[in-house]
Design a protein around this nucleic acid. Structure first.
Lengths: 144, 144
DNA sequence: GCATAATTGTAATGTTATAACAGTTCGGCT
DNA sequence: AGCCGAACTGTTATAACATTACAATTATGC
């Protein structure tokens, strides 16, 4: 959080109350949260809590790399790999909804190039693995 | 379509009217369609058209590899790489919403292994590139 | 034929996301 | 200091996507 505040100073970004509240919630959760869960949090903090408030805060956080959207869940996680606008892969546990962020290994670059060869301009690459984390696999969340 | 019918015979799958209508719509469209667009199509064909009808047909088609869900769009495309339950990558044009399916190149396997090493069991891998196809890049859909 | 599993029809509801617009605050400029 | 335009806020309303639940029907195996 301190790091984030520092980066905002540096890049002259405005970390407004709603944005900070949302980011805090994500940082504390260690899991993906939906916009509406975040709205609950905003309400708890006495901040305005109509949907656009959450979506605007999330747009800001995602745009500046402080958070990521997990397409599979229509939900959001705090970025755990500070700084650069990196491409990333996510391990999404369908048992407990935790999301681990994995720096995108070099091989994937090859894919981006392959795609470009098909004359497609890649602007964003989404890589999400759905499955079970160690804990949930153990607990047998799949075949109850 | 004939191929699909053949595979259903072979695997004793029931290609019911709703399922066939949805698949036909997807095959003709050559682009991603949402469940509600497909419902419109079902209505046009005189078939029932409540949301669950479309979602059930789509569940069936996706489960058996006849279609894929594009997470980025909350939409669906026909599978263009018949047969096997392959992992695939998708090139999603934000200009015209067309989706090209690209067989997932070998390197990605490495990623799945990397993930497994983190003791995460991968059940499904989503790879979606968002960007512009050649035609839309040409037309300058980005900076109008 | 009869049991059981798969599928259908339908209403109601839940969840996720955006449009639109008036009002406010911020930062740069002279 | 005062003004301008850009960014941001507050709010209502509504659009778009998806599921639950349950009764009714149709296939398939024995």
């Amino acid at each position: 959080m301190a790091e984030v505040r520092a980066r905002c100073e540096e890049e002259k970004l405005r970390l407004t109350p709603a944005r900070e509240c949302v980011l805090n919630a994500l940082l504390e959760a260690h899991r993906a949260m939906t916009a509406y869960e975040l709205l609950d949090r905003l309400r708890d903090e006495g901040l305005p809590h109509q949907p656009p408030v959450a979506y605007r805060a999330l747009d800001f956080l995602v745009e500046h790399g402080f958070a990521h959207r997990i397409e599979r869940l229509s939900a959001f996680v705090a970025c755990t790999h500070g700084s650069d606008h990196h491409a990333a892969a996510f391990l999404v546990c369908r048992g407990c909804r935790t999301v681990a962020e994995s720096k995108l290994p070099a091989p994937i670059r090859g894919i981006e190039e392959t795609m470009s060869r098909e004359s497609f301009t890649v602007e964003r690459l989404v890589v999400e693995a759905e499955g079970l984390c160690a804990a949930c696999a153990e607990a047998g969340t799949d075949t109850p």
